[in-house]
Amino acid sequence: MKRWIGFLGHLAIITILTSFATYRVKNTKVDVPDLLKVHNQGLFFDFPEEQTRIELEKDEFLNVFLGKSYQGFKDALAFKESQGDYSSVNTLGYLGKYQFGRSTLRLMGVKDGDAFLNDPALQEKVFNLNVARNKWILRRDIKRFVGKRINGITITESGIVAAAHLAGAGNVKKYLRSYGQADFSDAYGSTVAYYMKKFAGFDVSVIKAKQKPRI
């Protein structure tokens, strides 16, 4: 009886072990369509110069790489002004990627509007100089108002600089010192308050205030 019990026990163990045996399955080759094949190549993303963004709506976008950097600020403002087009001239005669008026260009030392339109590097340089100029004019207001809330908008340095690009430093002073009572609206309906909100929170510290910057 003991021998039969032992025999049956060994048989059960052998049965369990063989159930885990590995069986070789014959490989079957399947042809994959070319469109679904993965090739051993690097991935490259070709973005237009200085326009690394994904457009979401008419003038709303996501800065993929630039975030709240100064370059991100420039890119955002340029998209609002001209959709980033260096050759753009609007119905009021404002020129280039950042839509400068000819009087502002003359202040920067640029006398030839046509040459300005055909020189992207010059447009970028003029933009930086104009930021430096507006920072100088508004230096006391930046120190006084940054961090405060006006009309429900937290005032930031980048918001002030963007609004000055739209309306001029003088109109931004009036807006801030009247605590939002004296707003400015351009021919297309954009206001100081709108620019203060839309361009808030960017880091524009890389450009230092300068009294009379020129090319």
Score class of each variant (00 low, 15 high):
Met1Gln: 11
Met1Ile: 13
Met1Asp: 11
Lys2Asp: 10
Lys2Thr: 12
Trp4Gln: 08
Phe7Asn: 05
Gly9His: 01
Leu11Thr: 06
Ile13Ser: 04
Ile14Cys: 14
Thr15Gln: 14
Leu17Trp: 14
Ser19Tyr: 12
Phe20Ile: 06
Ala21Asn: 13
Lys26Glu: 14
Thr28Gly: 13
Thr28Ser: 11
Val30Ala: 11
Val30Lys: 08
Asp34Tyr: 14
Asp34Gln: 13
His39Gly: 06
Asn40Pro: 10
Asn40Lys: 15
Gln41Ala: 13
Gly42Leu: 14
Gly42Tyr: 14
Phe45Lys: 01
Phe45Pro: 03
Phe45Thr: 05
Asp46Met: 03
Phe47Ser: 10
Phe47Gln: 06
Glu49Tyr: 14
Glu49Gln: 11
Ile54Arg: 13
Asp59Cys: 04
Asp59Ala: 11
Asp59Leu: 09
Leu62His: 10
Phe65Asp: 06
Phe65Asn: 10
Lys68Arg: 08
Ser69Asn: 11
Tyr70Arg: 11
Tyr70Trp: 04
Gln71Arg: 09
Gly72Val: 05
Asp75Pro: 08
Ala76His: 07
Phe79His: 13
Asp85Ser: 04
Asp85Phe: 07
Tyr86Arg: 08
Tyr86Gly: 01
Ser87Cys: 05
Ser88Asn: 13
Val89Thr: 13
Asn90Arg: 01
Asn90Glu: 05
Tyr94Asn: 10
Leu95Pro: 14
Leu95His: 07
Gln99His: 12
Gln99Gly: 08
Gly101Trp: 02
Arg102Ala: 13
Ser103Ile: 02
Ser103Gln: 08
Ser103Thr: 15
Thr104Cys: 06
Leu105Lys: 03
Leu107Pro: 07
Met108Leu: 02
Gly109Thr: 15
Lys111Ala: 04
Lys111Leu: 05
Ala115Met: 01
Ala115Ile: 02
Leu117Pro: 03
Leu117Gly: 07
Asn118His: 07
Asp119Gln: 14
Gln123Met: 10
Lys125Cys: 04
Lys125His: 03
Phe127Asp: 00
Phe127Thr: 03
Leu129Glu: 00
Asn130Val: 00
Val131Glu: 01
Val131Asn: 05
Asn134Pro: 03
Trp136Gly: 14
Leu138Arg: 06
Arg139His: 07
Arg140His: 15
Ile142His: 07
Ile142Asn: 08
Lys143Asp: 10
Arg144Lys: 15
Arg144Asp: 03
Arg144Gly: 00
Gly147Thr: 00
Lys148His: 11
Arg149Ile: 01
Ile150Tyr: 12
Ile150His: 09
Gly152Gln: 02
Gly152Leu: 01
Ile153Val: 15
Thr154Tyr: 08
Ser158Gln: 15
Ser158Leu: 02
Gly159Arg: 01
Ile160His: 00
Val161Asp: 11
Ala162Met: 00
Ala162Asn: 04
His165Ala: 09
Ala169Gly: 06
Asn171Phe: 02
Val172Cys: 05
Arg177Lys: 09
Ser178Pro: 03
Ser178His: 04
Tyr179Thr: 07
Phe184Ser: 00
Phe184Ala: 05
Phe184Tyr: 01
Tyr188His: 09
Val192Arg: 02
Tyr194Val: 05
Tyr195Arg: 02
Lys197Ser: 09
Lys197Gly: 12
Gly201Trp: 07
Phe202Val: 08
Phe202Tyr: 11
Phe202Met: 05
Ser205Thr: 11
Ser205Glu: 06
Val206Lys: 10
Ile207Leu: 03
Lys208Ser: 12
Lys208Cys: 04
Ala209Glu: 01
Gln211Ala: 04
Lys212Ser: 10
Pro213Asn: 07
Arg214Phe: 12
